[in-house]
Simulated scan of single mutants.
Amino acid sequence: MKRLLLSAALGLATLSLMKSTASAKTESLVLGGGCFWCTEAAYEILPGVKDVVSGYAGGKEQNPTYEQICSKLTGHAEVIKIDYDPAVVSLEKLLDYFWHVHNPTQVGGQGNDHGPQYRSIILFTNPEQKAAAEKSRATAAKTFRDPITTEIVPLEKFWVAEKYHQDYFRLNPNAGYCAYVIAPKVKKLKAEVAAEKK
């Protein structure tokens, strides 16, 4: 009898583990909205986001460096790859949030950061992401006075940025750009996220 109960308990534990593993799915989205230090910091506070990695995409240069990106000749944009749990946060929510973390109507940069590497861009990996991005952009366009300039293009390759760019705001909160540009934005976004939970 004890053996039978132990066997049943092990079977239930295995089934429970399988279910929790199945529900712990991770999906990814790549997008850019100006300096990746800003967008990385903004998405790291969103519930359901597991990891955010800064990088480069949308250009032709293979394995580009930050210096090459800054030359404005490679065609790449500063982007982030967001790994998220779709059971906690939807693709639609991530895209809706995108229109709040930057100014998608600005041409040739973001804020005081000028150049094509700071352009607004969503890079899709499948038809579902493309359709969701186009729908989200159309909805967001109704809330802006000026036209949205965000590109929606296929992701050919995501290149991880140099190590010192990763988690930049978290590791350098007192650096000038972080303290005066990123911190106020993150504070505002945290308040919006908190308000949505109520």
Score class of each variant (00 low, 15 high):
114 H>I: 09
41 A>I: 07
129 Q>C: 04
165 H>R: 07
145 R>W: 09
31 L>R: 02
94 L>E: 02
198 K>G: 13
110 Q>D: 04
23 S>D: 12
104 P>Q: 06
97 Y>H: 12
87 A>E: 15
21 T>E: 03
137 R>D: 04
13 A>Q: 09
194 A>L: 13
123 L>C: 11
119 R>F: 06
89 V>L: 01
158 F>Y: 08
101 V>T: 11
65 T>A: 08
17 L>T: 03
85 D>C: 08
77 A>W: 03
70 C>L: 15
1 M>V: 11
178 C>P: 06
160 V>H: 14
74 T>Y: 07
60 K>G: 05
167 D>W: 02
44 E>W: 01
151 E>A: 15
97 Y>M: 10
68 Q>G: 12
121 I>S: 04
52 V>R: 00
54 S>C: 15
106 Q>H: 09
87 A>D: 14
158 F>N: 03
33 G>K: 00
96 D>N: 12
188 K>G: 07
194 A>E: 15
127 P>E: 15
10 L>V: 11
78 E>D: 08
73 L>N: 06
80 I>F: 05
34 G>K: 00
160 V>Q: 15
139 T>H: 15
28 S>P: 04
76 H>N: 07
25 K>C: 09
187 K>M: 08
17 L>F: 08
176 G>V: 10
48 G>F: 03
89 V>K: 01
85 D>T: 09
197 K>L: 12
187 K>L: 10
125 T>S: 13
28 S>Y: 14
169 F>I: 01
184 P>I: 09
137 R>K: 15
48 G>Q: 05
142 K>R: 13
71 S>I: 14
79 V>G: 11
120 S>L: 06
18 M>A: 10
2 K>T: 06
167 D>F: 05
136 S>L: 02
64 P>A: 09
143 T>G: 05
51 D>V: 04
23 S>F: 05
69 I>Y: 03
108 G>H: 11
48 G>L: 05
170 R>D: 13
95 L>K: 00
49 V>Y: 00
179 A>F: 12
180 Y>F: 14
8 A>I: 13
74 T>N: 06
40 E>I: 03
48 G>K: 01
35 C>Q: 02
26 T>M: 07
112 N>C: 06
64 P>K: 05
130 K>E: 14
110 Q>R: 11
65 T>E: 04
